[in-house]
């Protein structure tokens, strides 16, 4: 029994359809609250982790161990005057941060979360093609970034948007190829391999072990999607100041910032779902959600370490890498997956 069914049972007096509508509404609300809390945790964790790796202490003045620092920062961002560039393209300029943030929330609404003791699973969407939906939702975020870059009428922003487009095209093809290999392996076991829940539940061993190449390709793609170092060409601090989000301030900038941390968390969740067994694990039982969270957090820490220690790769080298190394690697991975599926029927 998951959260949706519980909520529906709670509202059952109102009739069938109103109860479902209300149940979906409240479940989405819970999910958004969960994502927001996780974002705050992520940003706090990042700042603390970065500080400790750099032998500093990090936020420690607001609240115990600086735990309220993020709230203070968020209040500051909300209270800030939003400075709008004069020659902007108004509608896209205002829509862009919302598109980025909505894409993120949509992706979080699609991934399955696994059970958590009495509460049950927080999964919002129960679709037969949730894998496709997930990647469709992820593909929305770059649109927001491109909109932001083009509409703010700034040369840095345009260059950032152009780099973003070049980057997205070159990593998304290998990413989908490596996902294809997953579907191929899963299709031997289930008739609905595009359903994420099915795809995860049929993993007898985590798919990251037979598909180590695919895991690497997919992880690199997720790093590129979240656009932090080494693949932060589109918002490179030291070159384009902050790329597509250069003309944004106040809460609009905050949305881009949260979008970035959100996509790190999202990427870690997806990698641990697809390749590391997701909420499966020994003694998982009712605690699948905790398993998922632990796996995702380990990946998040790895991502932070990469972010902090690696220089930025040049955009042409990245495009080269995408087409010349990642794509062939993904194809090889596909072949290996095919052999494993047919020969060993894993």
């Amino acid at each position: 029994m998951n959260v949706l069914q519980r909520l529906q049972a709670f509202f059952a007096i109102l009739g069938h359809y109103p109860s479902y509508i209300l149940a979906y509404f409240f479940e989405t609300l819970f999910m958004i609250i969960f994502v927001t809390v996780m974002l705050i945790v992520m940003i706090y964790l990042f700042r603390k982790y970065m500080a400790r790796v750099q032998l500093r202490i990090g936020p420690n003045r607001v609240g115990k161990f600086g735990s309220l620092q993020l709230i203070a920062d968020a209040l500051k961002l909300v209270g800030k005057e939003s400075i709008l560039p004069r020659k902007r393209d108004d509608l896209p300029y205002r829509v862009a941060p919302i598109v980025v943030f909505l894409g993120l929330i949509m992706a979080f609404a699609i991934i399955p979360y696994g059970d958590f003791y009495y509460i049950g699973s927080l999964t919002v969407t129960h679709s037969n093609v949730s894998l496709l939906l997930l990647f469709a939702a992820i593909a929305i975020m770059p649109i927001g970034e491109v909109l932001a870059g083009v509409s703010s009428n700034n040369k840095y922003a345009v260059i950032g948007a152009l780099r973003g487009v070049a980057k997205d095209i070159s990593f998304e093809v290998p990413m989908m190829m490596s996902v294809l290999a997953l579907v191929m392996m899963a299709s031997a076991r289930t008739s609905e391999p595009l359903n994420l829940t099915n795809l995860i539940s049929v993993q007898s061993i985590p798919y990251g072990i037979p598909q180590i190449i695919g895991l690497g390709v997919f992880f690199i793609a997720m790093v590129a999607r979240a656009s932090y170092s080494p693949f932060d060409m589109s918002e490179s601090d030291s070159e384009l100041v902050s790329g597509h989000s250069i003309e944004y301030s106040g809460m609009r900038f905050g949305m881009f910032y949260m979008g970035m941390f959100g996509s790190i968390f999202l990427g870690s969740m997806i990698v641990s779902l697809l390749y590391l067994g997701g909420y499966n694990g020994p003694f998982s039982g009712d605690a699948g959600f905790i398993y998922l969270l632990i796996k995702a957090m380990i990946l998040v820490i790895i991502s932070f370490t990469i972010w902090l220690s690696v220089p930025r790769i040049r955009i042409d080298k990245f495009v080269n890498m995408g087409w010349k190394y990642l794509l062939p690697a993904a194809v090889i991975n596909l072949v290996i997956a095919g052999i494993l599926t047919l020969g060993l029927s894993l």
Binding site: R52, V53, L55, I57, N60, T305, S309
Partner: peptide, 21 residues
């Protein structure tokens, strides 16, 4: 090499911070 470099940065987490409050 890259992984070695990343690890050499990451292991600084176990050192004491040098900041003076």
């Amino acid at each position: 090499g890259t992984i070695k470099a990343i690890a050499s940065v990451g292991k600084h987490i176990f050192q004491k911070p040098v900041t003076l409050q």
